[in-house]
Structure formats: C-alpha cells, structure tokens
Design a protein around this nucleic acid. Structure first.
Lengths: 342, 342
DNA sequence: TACGGTACGGCAAGCGCTTTCCAAGCAAAC
DNA sequence: GTTTGCTTGGAAAGCGCTTGCCGTACCGTA
C-alpha cells in the first residue's frame, strides 16, 4: 500500500508538498509540481491513510449512531434520515445495533469514543437498569469531556442535546380523535413500563380520557418488548381474558405492535374496524398499506434522525444548556378506526 | 484527553509497560506495576486512541457495509443480519447508504479504503452505468490489493466473494406453484432490466412457464426503481391498459413492489385473491401481516448478511478463486394466491 | 544595484501508540 | 564463583501524515 512518502519520492518533491497537493491545504503549490504529484499518486494508487490523518490532524469525519435494531422500521427510518443527512455532509457513519442489550450499548459508546468519532447519536429508549445507565452516563460524560458531541433521540435519560417527539401531545390528540369517533372503552397495548416513550404516550392518552371524564378500562398489557409478536400476544391475551369483548377500540403504543395486533385480530376473526377499531403510533411506512390502513400518530422519523445529526454537527458554546428539539406528532386517521354506531 | 504517556508518567512506568498492561499484549507485567498502571488509567479516564493504535499496529476492527437504503426492509434485514454477526465478533460496522447513487457508492468505497476497514460488504444490485462500474471495480481492486476483503450480496458484477440467493430457482419454483394453482395468465411487475436480481427472477419465471408450454402474456412493466410506489404505479398502468382484466395472477419481482401493487389493487377494488392472485419475492417481515398475507419466495435475508460477513472474515489464501455461497429460495404460499376456479 | 515583499518548497517536529531489541536482575546449573 | 537462561522493564524506532517555521528565489520599486 503506497504511502505519501513514496508518492513524494516518485514525484521528486518533499513530503510536505505532496501532502499539500493531495490533501486540500490552503497553501498553493506550483502547477508543474502539483501535476507531478497527482501523476505519481495515481500511478502508485495512493490512498491516504485516514488513521494517520486523524492522528496528525486531530479530526475525523465520522459519527456514530447507536440504536436498537435496524430491522425495526422505526429505527430504520430514523437511521435513514440521519444517513441521508450525513451523506450530504460527507460524513461516514458508523452504525451499531445493541439488540436491546445494555452491555452492548455501553461497549459501542466506548468503541466510538476510542475511534474519536466526532459525535454519537443514541436512538431508542433506555433501560431500567440503574447501574448500567450510570455506567453509560459516565462513558458519555468522558466522551464529551474529550470534545465529543452527543445527541439522543426520543429519550430524556441524559442531559444532552435531544430530539424529542411530542409523545404526550400526540397521544392526547389521538385520544381526542377516538373520543370524537364515539369510543369510550379502550384496550391499551403498552410496552415495558420503564421506557419513557411508553410512559409518555400512556400518560398522554390517559390524561385526555380523564379530561373527557370517560371511563378508561385501563387494561394494560405487558408486551414482548415493543415488538410485533408482543402486540400479537397481547391481543390474544385480551381475547382470552374477555376484555376484547368489552371494548370498541384497541390502541397499540407503537405501530410495530399494532401490526402484530392486527394480525391477531384477523386470526381471531375480529373485524377491524367493524367490531373494534385499531390505532397505532409512529406512522412507520408500512402501516398505510395494511388492510385496513392503520390509523396512527405520525412522527417525522426521518426528519428526527436528520435533526439529531444537526444538533451534534452544529457546534455551540461548551457547557451551554443541552438543547431540546421538539417535533410535533400528528394524528392520521385511516380506515382502521371507525365511528361507533349508536 | 489523556494519553498513554500521561498514564505511564503518573504510574511511574515506561510507555512500553503501560501499553502492555492496557492493551492486551502477550508480555507479562509484574503485578504491582500492572495495578499502578490500571489505577492511573482509570484516574485519568484514559481511553486509547484507536487511530494511533491502528497506525502503530496496523489493524482495525471495523468493517464497512454499503447498501442502497436502510429504510428498505430488504436491506434492513440483510444489514441486521450482518450487524448481529458483527456484534458477536466485536467488530464495528460502518454502514453507508448510497440511495442508489453510483457516485456515492464509489465515494463510500474509497472512504472505507482510507479508513483501512478490514472488509467491505456491498449489498444490492449494481447499476447499468458501464463507466461507473469500471471505476468501482478499480476502487475495489486497489482496496483488495492493499489487503482489504470484499464480499457482495446478491450480485455478480465483480469477481469477489459472493452470497447469491437462488433467484432463478426460486422464481421457477414460484412459477411452478402458481401453475399448479391453475394460473395461466400472468402479469409481471419487474424492476430495472439491468438489475441482475430482476433479470434472474424474470428469466427463472419465464423459463418455467415455457417448460409448462403455457402462454406467458409477458406484460412486463417498468418500475419506479424497485420501490413500493413503482409497484403501485405498475398496477395502475396494468389496469389502464386493460391487461389486468386478462390475467389471473400478478407477480411482483420484489415484496416491496408487491406491497405497492396490493395497495393499488385495493384502491381499484380488485379482490385479492378473488379476482387476481398476487405474489411477491423476498419474504420481508411485513408481508405476512398484509391482508391478505402475501405469497412470496422466502430468502433468508438475515442469514445472507451474516454469511457475507463470514466470507470476509474467514480469511483464506490470497488470489484464491472468489467463493460463492448459494442460498436457497423457498416458495411460501399464503392467502394472496388462490386456485383458479375452472 | 539594493531592498522589502511575496510565493512557495522543504525540514523536522510531532500526533499516540506498538513492538523490537537490549539490559538488568535473578534463579538454577555447573 | 561463573555461566546460562529466563523474566521483565525501558529506550527508541517507527506507523503515515500535517503543519509551523525557515529559507530561497523572484518580483517590483526606488
């Protein structure tokens, strides 16, 4: 593998000159030398060593993105937004999936720190584990102490720049919309209680129902980890416990779970929205193509990823207050929810 | 940001000793010194500089994955498989999306080369552009010349290790299954002709129909880039041209397009599978939850990603023949396809 | 002809680490 | 007591690159 020194020798110039020609410096190099260097470089198939550059110049063009799982459309959309934005800024993104393993999350943050990544973006809710969270907080702090930037999407675990969808507001709006359709009896499919996303959405929903002085059966259902299968199982349990017969509307706190729920309802031959209405949350791309198309609360997922990148890229005074970018959630009613017939 | 030198000084040992303690070397260090070093390191919050390590030691623990778009479930699944496998091997993966822009693909490969990534995995079909392909080939060759490993998924553009799903075989099997259901008149929704994936699937399908001496209307439909919207538009055009009325089965050469197609059929009030059957290809996770659940050809997408990683990780003699890992495709009939009533 | 100013090439000092090689210390063997 | 061999710390040579600084050549001006 050719080095700059070899290029310089072949071109008959100094190392400095070769460097200035090949790696955009402000210094001007005389045309003839410049040409020689370029020729030598291409002849030797010279490819600069990014590590050496980083070491000498003290800068990298890479950012890290840590999320639960790319195969989850929710994260895929966020990641997609961040990557599209990164591409526009000539950044290399290093993406890692934790598969919901806190140890892995920590390991990745440390790894990115070692790589001296310019920034780290954490997407996805945190964990209950107090000790793990503390370790992560420490790791992030020392990363930041070294000049690294951190942003998180959709969680308020850490005092860092945050992109925060209006989960509560969205949930309230959804509740309002469903109440307007005449629904009074709901079954909620929630996720792990310690996930802030879950809590916010749940609180928002319940709050609005409270305001409306309607009764909320509050049949909360533990999930299988905010997953499609968790949603499926939840509906089965609702059915077996008889709860399903008492409600007119099932609300899943995420689209992914709603998809599972819809599948279960279909398997149970429960008509949607004929017998019960169904709504989700997130508006991931696929849900508009379900049958019936799913009512949900739209989050601008791609944009959220992009905004997170903005946050970490847009440097600002050290030790300033963490910034919070709030993004709106908007109710999208589709065919999976219907008016309750009197 | 603390350096090894500072740690060494604080511990009262030499740089060499500190290095040996902190970064797994074979050399043994006396217990008391070792402890001092560890203490100093944690006190100073020392985090090794991966760039310096790479420069000095000449090795990195990162692999690059280049694909079209993470938000596409097909790629998301492949990427997920690769990442899960990478996680098990303590590898950092740098993922980049080309968004189907050949220039970006080239840029990313070069970038990964500069990063001295251990390996590069390319997923997704190539482009028609002869010149661009040549540039990419050159870039890959010079990367390999420098000791980099390359594997591709689902394309045979380059002479490198390849994970190749049996697209033709799968398409043939699908055709056979549909023929058995009594279908004789098909509309095919294809993708860009230069995509090898498209070609293989198309050829496989047609070949089997030919063998069966059945007539293939061969209403090929150009797509909007192998996308959901492309599938949607294709069906609309089939409808407008009257072709749709003449067939009993619509086959989309990818699930993503099939999803769009299904949406279009629904909008046109064409019953599936009552009026026409519909089949896709890939078996991405969402299609089993469509209504009706989609018949398709299952590709073990996650496994394909993992196998690609295996290929690049499992080093072998230089200049050996490129290896090809073939993976089977299996027909999965669900409710979207029905028997043709006589 | 002399002088200041400008343009531009090159030397060399790092950036933070790994690793080779040498030396010192010590135990065992003669 | 000397030799041999082993263990383990440390000095120092890079790894490939950037960049501050110096020096030279050449320009215009008086």
């Amino acid at each position: 593998m050719a080095t700059l020194a070899e290029v310089a020798r072949q071109a008959g110039v100094s190392l400095a000159t070769a460097s200035r020609v090949l790696n955009g410096s402000t210094r001007v190099v005389r045309a003839d030398l410049r040409e020689k260097v370029v020729a030598a470089a291409s002849e030797l198939r010279y490819t600069p060593n990014a590590h050496a550059q980083a070491l000498a110049g003290n800068h990298t063009a890479s950012v890290g993105v840590v999320l639960h799982d790319v195969s989850d459309p929710y994260f895929a959309a966020i990641a997609g937004g961040a990557m599209r934005h990164a591409a526009e800024n000539d950044l290399l993104v290093m993406m890692s999936c934790t598969f919901r393993d806190p140890d892995r999350e920590l390991a990745y943050v440390r790894m990115l720190h070692q790589q001296r990544a310019q920034a780290i973006i954490l997407a996805g809710s945190g964990y209950h584990d107090r000790e793990r969270t503390e370790l992560l907080r420490t790791a992030l702090a020392s990363y930041q102490a070294g000049g690294g930037r951190v942003a998180v999407v959709s969680q308020h675990r850490f005092e860092v720049d945050t992109v925060l969808p209006d989960n509560q507001g969205g949930a309230r709006a959804l509740a309002r919309a469903l109440l307007e359709l005449g629904h009074r009896d709901f079954a909620l499919i929630t996720g792990p209680e310690h996930l802030l996303t879950v809590r916010d959405r749940y609180l928002g929903f319940r709050h609005e129902l409270g305001r409306a002085a309607a009764k909320l059966p509050n049949h909360r259902v533990a999930d299988g980890g905010f997953t499609r299968d968790g949603g499926y199982e939840a509906v089965r349990r609702l059915h077996e416990s008889g709860v399903l017969d008492e409600v007119t509307c099932v609300v899943a706190l995420s689209d992914v779970m709603a998809i599972g729920a819809l599948a279960a309802l279909r398997d149970l031959h429960v008509a949607v929205p004929g017998r019960v209405s169904l709504a989700g949350f997130d508006d991931i791309p696929t849900v508009r193509d379900l049958a019936p198309p799913l009512s949900t609360v739209r989050l601008p997922l791609e944009e959220m990823g992009a905004r997170a990148l903005d946050l970490v890229l847009d440097s600002r005074a050290e030790s300033a207050e963490p910034r919070v970018v709030r993004v709106d959630a908007e109710v999208v009613l589709r065919a999976s929810t219907a008016e309750v017939r009197p």
